[in-house]
Simulated assay, not measured.
Amino acid sequence: MDVVVVGASGFVGQELVRVLARHPVFEPVAFQAHQRAGRRLGELVPGLSVDLAERPIEPIDPRAVAAELAFCALPHGHSGGIIRELRARGVRVVDLGADLRLADEATWRRWYGDDHPAPELLGSAVVGVAEHVRTELASAQVWAVPGCYVTATVLAAKPLIDAGLARRDLVVVDAISGVTGAGSAATETTHFVNVAEGVRAYALGGHRHTPEMRSLLGVPVRFTPHLGPYSRGIAATITLPVADATVDADSVRDVLARAYGTSPFVEVRETPPSTREVRGSNRAVLAATVDDEVGVIVATSVIDNLGKGAAQHAVQGANLMVGVDEVLGLEGLGVWP
């Protein structure tokens, strides 16, 4: 199946190139980008085969897309108009940007500060983590892939809320991400000397992934992100109020284990995982327990922000959209040590 990557020059786009290069069904026929158009793929993504490395990055032009499926990996505000044109041409879309994740234009404007580029498309996409929307993806024309922090959080929290183990009250999320989560453009905050050997919180007044978490979980969420001194990976700690005194560590782990018992990319365990375990992969590893003294569930979730948090998650969902095994092209990915 012919596919195109729109936004191939950023870190997420580069990860898409890396994964699609070995996919047995998806055949990338074009790579488009606003930035770095005219350069060779091999200049951005080391380790590609010689023929793929020589492929050019073309300027973004949805009218030039001759493919059945498009992966859009663009900053917020840039993909809405392009998706409108792609859909008019009958192209199905996996959108890794933020433009279609929220259904309400006023909420978009509040969090992103601008008018929405394609308000008529709001509410038209399937939104959610692939493990939670498998049935909907089979017929989806557009899938809005959740943000990286959102994916890590929702995988751990949603089954506990839906099962009634957690009260529908304030959920507190603290998460740390590697620097690739800030994008490929160098800034003062991502400069080596400002990131190395330290961790800092940011967006204390509210992060744009917060309304996504609230929408997918259906509860109030207080989210604080942190920037860590490493390239890729997210570790999220989620604190949820227990529904009642009968909720214990065994019941929490049992709910998570049953929720993901047939999921090939999600592992549930007793001990907290490390981001190094999921580096370069589409895996998520969850652990949870109960703090009886204060009456809360404490869950932790680790993913690779470029893998399960973006590009590899996108390929997993695209597999489901076209009716092939969701693990196709994602087997064996990951790096250790």
Rank of each mutant, 00 (worst) to 15 (best):
L170A: 00
L170V: 05
V171R: 06
V171P: 03
V172H: 06
V172C: 01
V172Y: 02
V172I: 07
V173A: 07
V173R: 02
V173S: 03
V173I: 09
D174E: 08
D174I: 04
D174L: 02
A175P: 04
A175K: 06
A175F: 06
A175D: 06
A175E: 03
A175S: 14
I176G: 09
I176Q: 09
S177N: 12
G178S: 04
G178Q: 02
G178T: 03
G178R: 08
G178P: 02
V179Y: 07
T180W: 09
T180K: 07
G181D: 10
G181Q: 12
G181W: 14
A182K: 15
A182R: 15
G183I: 13
G183D: 14
G183Y: 12
S184K: 13
S184G: 15
S184P: 07
S184R: 15
S184L: 15
A185M: 13
A185R: 15
A186G: 11
T187M: 13
E188L: 15
E188P: 04
T189Q: 14
T189G: 11
T189I: 13
T190D: 11
H191M: 14
H191G: 12
F192S: 09
V193G: 11
V193H: 13
V193L: 14
N194G: 10
N194T: 10
V195H: 03
A196P: 11
E197Q: 07
E197I: 00
G198C: 07
V199A: 05
V199I: 09
V199Q: 03
R200K: 04
R200C: 01
R200P: 00
R200L: 00
R200H: 05
A201V: 01
A201G: 01
Y202M: 07
A203F: 05
A203R: 08
A203T: 03
A203V: 02
G205K: 01
G205D: 05
G205I: 01
G205V: 01
G206T: 00
G206R: 00
G206W: 00
G206E: 01
H207F: 08
H207Y: 07
H207W: 09
H207E: 05
H207V: 11
R208N: 10
H209S: 10
H209D: 12
H209Y: 10
T210W: 08
T210F: 04
T210D: 08
T210E: 13
M213F: 10
M213Q: 12
M213N: 13
R214W: 05
R214N: 04
R214C: 12
S215C: 01
S215Y: 04
S215A: 14
L216E: 04
L216A: 03
L216P: 01
G218T: 06
G218W: 14
G218A: 10
G218D: 09
G218Q: 00
G218M: 07
V219P: 07
V219C: 07
P220Q: 02
P220S: 00
V221I: 03
V221E: 00
V221F: 02
R222T: 00
F223G: 04
F223W: 03
F223H: 09
F223Q: 06
F223C: 08
T224H: 08
T224E: 06
P225S: 08
P225W: 13
P225L: 13
P225N: 07
P225V: 09
P225I: 11
L227I: 11
G228N: 07
P229V: 00
P229D: 05
P229T: 02
